[in-house]
Design a protein around this nucleic acid. Structure first.
Lengths: 341, 341
DNA sequence: CTGTTAGCGCATTCAC
DNA sequence: GTGAATGCGCTAACAG
């Protein structure tokens, strides 16, 4: 072997000292060359940069973070992986943060019991801030982060009374919108299907939908089911309702996939005609909702606005940790297609 | 204001010195208490942990990384966000790495021109390894990482001759499988639709499919189109083929959504009957493929095996950076449903 | 088993 | 505008 014992010897880390030596300056000069706006002569900077280039030097961000006692890491806690809309939020947030010079440390929320631990690990890495996608944080965690001056923003959840910032949809407003839409089109028997019962947004929808319908003469909420999430669950659910004689003439689903399951269940399993016999409303306006075989009426998810507000709130608190928590509830609207009369 | 000038004062960082003082031990003892397997008396450890708990101490991983000259950060470069299968890969890889004590630094590949820069930023954070989902890296980048002893694994891409490890599907094998499937069912005119032309996996499929069909008497590849990705593109594509008189009796699509677009185009726009007039094959076995209104025959994506091999290759090289790069091509198979005869 | 010491790579004083 | 010195919080090596 030509390279004998050298096999696997990893190149020694190149530090600012190496660059300083080659450029014939001090390490401080190297540091200044890599610090935007630092006080350094153009010629010195040029020589440093040249030396850095020939050596392939990259500043060690870890050392810098330790020294400055702050990092440019943002922790992102992610739930809701089965929702393309939320994954988009993750993607775009990470892309946008990158343009602001931040890096994303991603953590998947496997188990809600472990959130405390998850946040603890993020804090060990001295993250500058935390974004949480579709989950809420225990109050103790929020308090600990506040104590450390690490801002938190919840996305797609509110976390009422927990003391964090949040960006989500206004479920109460949306519930009224759905009620009016159905009443106007002369529906009489409305069913609402959603996933986890503890999600503030969908709870709000069903609550205000229910309230609004209670004020009418002849339109009622005939079913309000939870733990119905996804295509199979939706298809099973409409089958069970029909079998049990519930027979709704309109179904609102908290998720487009569920709604398409209801659509297929009604059509394929019972020969119902949509929307003549049954109107179906989804939520999220995922790509599938627009496909020719579904043509689902659904609720728009204002993704870009959600992201914009999230970043605004987060970045502002990264600048000034003293800002109070802020909750922003966005209004959205229908995308009407062929699944409703 | 009761708290006067103290508003916004952030709690001072709690360090191992604070804990050592409270517990009446040295900082080294604190370090040992938090180092699994370190040589420390149980009683000492107990006192340290107690002090740490009352102070709310968390070790500063940044300082540890600097000291040890290695981090437990893994960079994940992500492309293919529009593919649920690949997003699952991201999710599970991050979850699994976490159980191994690693953290994921996520970077989205916005622009392939910027990959060099992206990897550079990861290296500044002293990542221990890099996983790349559905993209290839320039040879220079691979070389630089090799020089530093930072292992790279490509997922869903091969990157032939670039010197990295990779886990992907065996496209050549799959092309033969598809050819045999179609020949056996007496198809005569096959079309293949895929997205980006430079993806090694789908190129391999079409290549070997084409080769195999060329060896038959009466079955030919009548069209091989690129840049056809997604529902709309698939629907448009089948319309154009029919308008141009190509009239395939079987279409393979590199992506399930594309295939469903073809399905809807054939049925809704041309009144064709599937599979009598046209067989459609997708790829990925996404959830939509199984839905009642589509019933798409497709290629299984062996997600768990992909992830398993990726982690095996990556973790082994994290332990021993001297290991040679390894490429693993997995074989997969059909999920036959109602869209093929 | 434990404490003392040194140093990881950098940014920031402070003199000059 | 520049260099020397200091310390961020921690772990590793050593001596006890």
């Amino acid at each position: 072997m030509p390279d004998g014992g050298l096999t696997g010897i990893v190149a020694k880390q190149i530090t600012s000292i190496d660059v300083a030596n080659l450029a014939g300056v001090s390490v401080a000069a190297v540091s200044r060359a890599f610090t935007p706006g630092a006080s350094i002569a153009p010629e010195t900077k040029r020589r440093v940069m040249e030396a850095a280039k020939t050596l392939g030097y990259q500043p060690n961000v870890i050392a810098r973070s330790l020294n400055q006692r702050r990092s440019r890491l943002i922790g992102v806690l992610m739930s809701g992986w089965n929702n393309f809309g939320y994954v988009d939020v993750l993607r775009i947030i990470s892309e946008q943060l990158e343009t602001q010079g931040y890096e994303v440390m991603l953590k998947s929320i496997l188990d809600r019991e472990k959130i405390v631990e998850n946040v603890g690990q993020l804090l060990q890495y001295q993250v500058a801030g935390i974004a949480v996608v579709s989950e809420v944080l225990p109050a103790e965690v929020t308090a600990e982060c506040a104590r450390r001056g690490v801002p938190i923003v919840l996305v797609n959840r509110i976390g009422r009374g927990l003391g964090n910032s949040a960006v989500s949809l206004d479920g109460l407003h949306l519930g009224r919108l759905i009620a009016d839409f159905l009443i106007e089109r002369r529906h009489k028997r409305v069913a609402a299907l959603r996933g986890r019962a503890d999600i503030d947004f969908t709870s709000d929808i069903v609550q205000s939908l229910s309230d609004r319908l209670a004020g009418t003469e002849d339109c009622e909420l005939v079913a309000s089911l939870t733990d119905v999430l996804g295509y199979e669950a939706g298809r099973r659910s409409i089958n069970e309702m029909i079998a049990n004689g519930v027979e709704p003439d309109a179904v609102f689903c908290s998720y487009d996939d569920t709604a398409i399951g209801v659509l297929d269940g009604a059509r394929l399993d019972h020969g119902l005609e949509v929307p003549r016999d049954l109107s179906v409303i989804g939520n999220g306006n995922r790509a599938v909702a627009s496909w020719g075989s579904h043509e689902l009426t659904t609720i728009e998810y204002p993704r870009d606005e959600i992201i914009e507000q999230t970043l605004r709130i987060l970045l502002a608190r990264l600048e000034d940790p003293d800002l109070e928590p802020e909750t922003r509830l966005l209004e959205t609207d229908f995308v009407v297609r062929a699944s409703t009369r």
